[in-house]
Design a protein around this nucleic acid. Sequence first.
RNA 1: GCCGCUUUAGCUCAGCUGGUUAGAGCAUCAGUUUUGUAAACUGAGGGUCGUCGGUUCGAAUCCGACAAGCGGCUCCA
Length: 610
Amino acid sequence: MSDQQNELHPMRHSLAHIMATAITHLWPEVKLGVGPVVENGFYYDVDIPNVTLSAEDFEKVEAEMKKVIAENQPFERFTKPIDEAIAWAKDAKQPYKEELLNDLKRAGTTVAKELDAEELGLATEGDSQVSEVSFYKNGDFTDLCRGPHVESTGKVGAFKLMRVSGAYWRGKDTNPQMQRVYGIGSADDKELRVYLNILEEAKKRDHRKLGQELDLFFFDDTAPGMPYWLPKGVIMYNELISFWRQEHTARGYQEIVSPLLNKKELYVTSGHFGHYWSDMFTSETEDGELYGMKPMNCPNAMLVFKHRNRSYRELPLRFSDTDTLHRFELSGALNGLFRVREFRQDDAHIFVNEDQIKEEYKRIFEITELFYSIFDISYSFRLGTRPEKSMGDLALWEKAESTLKEILEESGKEYSIEEGDGAFYGPKIDILMKDALGRPWQMGTIQLDFQQPIRFELSYTDADGHEKTPIAIHRVIYGSLERFIGILLEHLAGRLPIWLAPEQIRLVTVNQEANTVEFAEKVVEQAKELNLRITIDNDNESVGKKIRNAELMKVPYTVVIGEKEIETGELIPRIRSDMAVSARHEPHTIEEFLKTVANEAKSRVSKTSL
RNA sequence: GCCGCUUUAGCUCAGCUGGUUAGAGCAUCAGUUUUGUAAACUGAGGGUCGUCGGUUCGAAUCCGACAAGCGGCUCCA
């Protein structure tokens, strides 16, 4: 945490209290939940009987908060024995606080995973039973809280309420839903404006907006969560896949294709029938057979392994595929390309023996670095351990988890641990990336699977002639092509590198005269021989207008074709600003220009040498 | 799925508290113009106002249901 964040933390936490104070003044019957600090601000979960807060109420709440701030009430800390605290909560008619206090008394902690001790405001740590808890009081408002806070309500900087949404009490969807009011908090008005400005800028990078503007994809009401890829979108989609294919073929991966639909029996074997069937698209045929559309590729990869006898000599056996997957995601979870119901993963299933796990992980990490370094997007690792609803032997789980920890330790990479976040068949290492708004998304994932090979009764003949069960590694690097393209678009603000740009060169004619068009067509012909994606804009518009259109479509190179070019036979490319090393616009022979661009596309550079 | 908000032409948006044939810019098409590095001019076509139902003499406008989208929650690549 930076120094600035260290300072902002108590300010934002105090703002949460001040907001709760204001809401209590306006709606005295409010039942309070928790009010922690989050990135850039704070929130408080409130439950106001028969009142639904909306953005229109923010003005009222903000005005009341400003009153509290103007009064500069000191934050006073005091402690109470736990039983007195519980009595206080009961007396104040705060059932949520009472529940938390009871949990504290009983277990010394609260179980809900998101609400750690800091957020709840425990007075003591560890598993021991709590005897005392701390409170903070400002003006007429008292709250159970660990702190710390600023000295007084006047010292909280600048703030703004942003939105309100539903949030399940203690993060469990079986609990009642509260209203979560979000606010942002900054050191002062200037910082606040800077942050609001950043948010505005981020909206311009929204991949849904860019997908619309750049003619990449769209959605139709009849296929929620299933993108339609337009010709330009397909070009970048396929370029990403061919890069993936090229690099994986070179590393000993063998590509397979398998059915999209399988009978239920496959998913009974894999365990998906019990764990995942309700999240799948399914159908029943005329003859009464139940089919499921595959939500992941692993069961079919298991069948490919099982297809014939396997030898230890084949290991590691690497099967890759990019088949289409369908998952019946909750309607409320869908989000542009980030969360879809139909997508393709750059998938692979690697069958190894126990001794090969580490080496194979190292190889996968190498591929990861190669891919991500090209796009220059920062990412982080997260280890997910055994979830509650898991399959298989506990000892195997522990072994798998400790193996992954070792691998991460040895790799020297930073990682976080998310308990219970593994797949139901094994622990996993996830790779996270952030979108334009700073929201983290799971991208690549490398999962260790001791379970499915057993369930599918996979085996190979080992050197000693005995049959052994292989271990499967499931891994994706991009994650899903869809989500990756979403992240990429936001990261690049739509300015795709030459190798991914649907249109690499646009020729803009100065007039519609025959010799101009002829010249342009000659350039196109040469460009096509080099597999370049080039178009001619011969519209009856001003040159200025056509340049503008090329700029808006973020075409890497735009070349004006007129008298001058025809005379000299040289082109002066206009280079998209993010690719230019300097502001030069120099003439090049047609051949030189096209060859350079072709090389740049091939070597996947982000800057031009022109 | 849950909570809140949103939905008017291909796109971005006007349309005040319900009142005659629903507007604009961009885009599209046609004509004029033949243009030199971020928007030439003129004209035309295009919307049963997300869908269905209700209230009303009258609904884009009010109410309800459903659908899709957005921000969260839950869940996940």
